[in-house]
Design a protein around this nucleic acid. Sequence first.
DNA 1: ATAAATGTGGAGGGTACCTCCGCTTATCAA
DNA 2: TTGATAAGCGGAGGTACCCTCCACATTTAT
Lengths: 194, 194
Amino acid sequence: MAEKSDEPTVRKPRADAERNRLLLMETAKTVFADKGSSASLEEIARIAGVGIGTLYRNFPTRDALVSAIYRNETAQLAAAAKSLAETHPPVEALRLWLVQFVDYVVTKHGMSEVLNSLVGGTSELYADSADLIIGAVNLLVDHAVATGEIRLAMDPLDILRALAGGASISCGPAWREAARQLIDILIAGMRASR
Amino acid sequence: MAEKSDEPTVRKPRADAERNRLLLMETAKTVFADKGSSASLEEIARIAGVGIGTLYRNFPTRDALVSAIYRNETAQLAAAAKSLAETHPPVEALRLWLVQFVDYVVTKHGMSEVLNSLVGGTSELYADSADLIIGAVNLLVDHAVATGEIRLAMDPLDILRALAGGASISCGPAWREAARQLIDILIAGMRASR
DNA sequence: ATAAATGTGGAGGGTACCTCCGCTTATCAA
DNA sequence: TTGATAAGCGGAGGTACCCTCCACATTTAT
């Protein structure tokens, strides 16, 4: 028992490895923003100046790369739910957060697949990010339901699916606007049920 | 002026050409149903027993093929709007048609791209099919608005986008159910606005 | 039967995916 | 400092798909 507890010898991770990882994420972010999330991974590696093998070692799948890039922003979005819940009446908090969710999706132009995975479900890769989002929307909905102001007989996640899915069909500012209207109608509909 | 009016000589279209065209559509339909709309075109040609060149001559793009396959069913869906409008109260007609629309989308499992194009917008290829759908939903919404039962401050097409988009994220029977709930909420929301 | 129009099919050039493994380099112990 | 060695690198290469192009085959009309 020379070491802390379990590993006999733990090496410091190589500096170049972490450097490459960050470089790839940086590069991928701009390339994805330019060309959508279907941009060629080989191109990303080429631009980043690393071998394709390095890309695949760090991010075994396209999704892994994409999810890594947006993990931060996803966390932020989830965090916003908490702060909105504290500073606004429940229903308004929900409404504002949904708007923010749409903005998030829309500005990730061409990132529909991210959302597919984030909110779509089966991938283990995003389990953590997805959980954050699910937790956020559930928090807000639960609050609003608790006050008796709204009723909701469905999984709130499905509302996100609709909003995100719309973006994957009609991306850009147009959907941003449409989604706002949609959110208003939905909220009205949830209030209406007596 | 030996012929009818304009063409000097019009040949009967070759029999094998039309045969191949139909064969390809038939084959593509089953393959798409199996593997989603991203199935390999070369595989479709292979299974149909024609050369890849023949496929591309008949259907210059993947979308052309897909849209050809579903043109009939799209037309049917659009036609249903008219008959629903005649046999049901306006709002109920709208509700029923939206449900039918979702069923249509869901059963085309993996056909998200079709919808993207059908309801998405920019492609000229589907102009006709898209117009049918747009016409259908507008008809129903206009009726329901005319009676004063609902209000709608947005393009009805965007509602279809949300419903179809949701399916592209969470396809299958699950979305079918979710969408029904969503439709109810939306209708309630549209009624609510005074 | 024959000519002309029409359609066929697959080779081929290009791109992307992903794996595999010999080589390079950073870390650590002596 | 200097190896030893684990860790990481990168690109060649096999596979699959996309789409184009054109020599050849088949159909239609005369």
